[in-house]
């Protein structure tokens, strides 16, 4: 019951928040979107003011009364200072570095201000991420990098960004939740198959020779004791992808394919995970590779752009609203 009541209010709150602070690529913080409320220390400070008032009243001492007034007035003025520490900032998202599922995404934020005012203790966080503190001293811009967990393949929305600060006196907390319409690309969780399946014959000229002893690289096999150390794929080992031996043969088709049909009998995510793992293993070999998914063929190519394209295709396979990410 309690959970459902809380859930109800959380829903109401997020709907109200969505109406009040709609998504936008850059948000300027100010009167309209900042909240401010005394912190626990602030309430303790109010208690202190009460105690001072009691002392002043009971001892009928005007000097202590004056100090009480000063403390109360400090509290009021510090509302403005706490507010001003966030007010006037413009927050935008610079870029989201994609990551693999079950790992993290890196969100890079840009905090800008029109004039180089001193700001400190700017805490930025997403739900589930660690709070990162930033300060601006004599600059108009500062970058903040946040890592957010990437739960599953596809497009991930880390939710609203919470920016908060208790600077300068810690008696009041100013905060806001801004929706920067951030969506990050999450690649499939890579799975490394035991044996690297060789490329599929695609053209008449290419013929795979299963036999050993050729000059051309054919694929990788899990290391078995006794394999020649010369053939160990050290690059893969260094990336902690496991100990493999390179397998050479006479291959006529030197183009490698990541093919949907290579893993029959597996479901979609399992296939994508394996394709992703394969890709990571192939790339260091320095040979062209292509991708074949249902309804999509990327011709073999090399280079960083191609790799990212392939990863993106894997990430966004059968994902709706994928425009702008390919």
């Amino acid at each position: 019951m309690a959970v459902s009541v809380r859930g109800f209010f959380q829903q109401r709150f997020s709907r109200w928040l969505a109406r009040r602070l709609p998504p936008s690529s850059a948000v300027s913080l100010g009167r309209r979107n900042l909240f401010i409320f005394p912190s626990a220390t602030g309430f303790a400070f109010l208690l202190l003011i009460g105690l001072c008032w009691l002392a002043a009243t009971n001892y009928e001492n005007n000097l202590v009364f004056g100090i009480t007034c000063l403390l109360a007035s400090l509290f009021v003025v510090s509302i403005l200072h706490s507010f001003a520490n966030l007010s006037g900032l413009t927050v935008s998202c610079l870029k989201v570095t994609p990551g693999f599922a079950d790992k993290t995404l890196t969100v890079e934020l840009l905090l800008r201000q029109p004039r180089s005012r001193f700001r400190d203790g700017l805490g930025c966080s997403f739900a589930g991420s660690e709070k990162v503190m930033a300060a601006m001293s004599g600059v108009t811009e500062c970058r903040v990098k946040l890592t957010v967990p990437a739960p599953q393949r596809g497009l991930h929305d880390p939710g609203r960004l919470r920016i908060e600060s208790i600077y300068p006196v810690g008696l009041l907390r100013a905060w806001t939740y801004v929706d920067l319409a951030i969506r990050g690309l999450v690649y499939p969780r890579p799975l490394f198959p035991d044996s690297y399946p060789p490329g599929r014959r695609t053209t008449g000229e290419g013929l795979l020779q299963g036999g050993e002893g050729g000059d051309d690289f054919v694929g990788l096999n899990r290391y078995r004791p006794g394999d020649s150390l010369k053939h160990v794929a050290w690059k893969h080992y260094a990336r902690e992808q496991g100990l493999y031996t390179k397998h050479y043969g006479d291959v006529l088709d030197r183009q490698l394919w990541l093919d949907w049909d290579q893993f029959p009998g597996l479901d979609r995510e399992a296939r994508l995970s394996r394709l992703c793992g394969l890709l990571l293993q192939i790339v260091p070999l320095g040979q062209p590779y292509g991708l074949r998914l249902l309804g999509l063929v990327l011709e073999p190519a090399m280079g960083d752009a191609h790799r990212q394209r392939v990863l993106a295709e894997l990430a966004l396979f059968e994902i709706p609203n994928r425009e702008g990410f390919l």
């Binding site: 000063l70 109360a72 007035s73 400090l74 510090s78």
Partner: peptide, 9 residues
């Protein structure tokens, strides 16, 4: 802060 708090005080 203290200076700005004076008038109100």
């Amino acid at each position: 802060l203290l200076f700005q708090a004076m008038p109100l005080m």
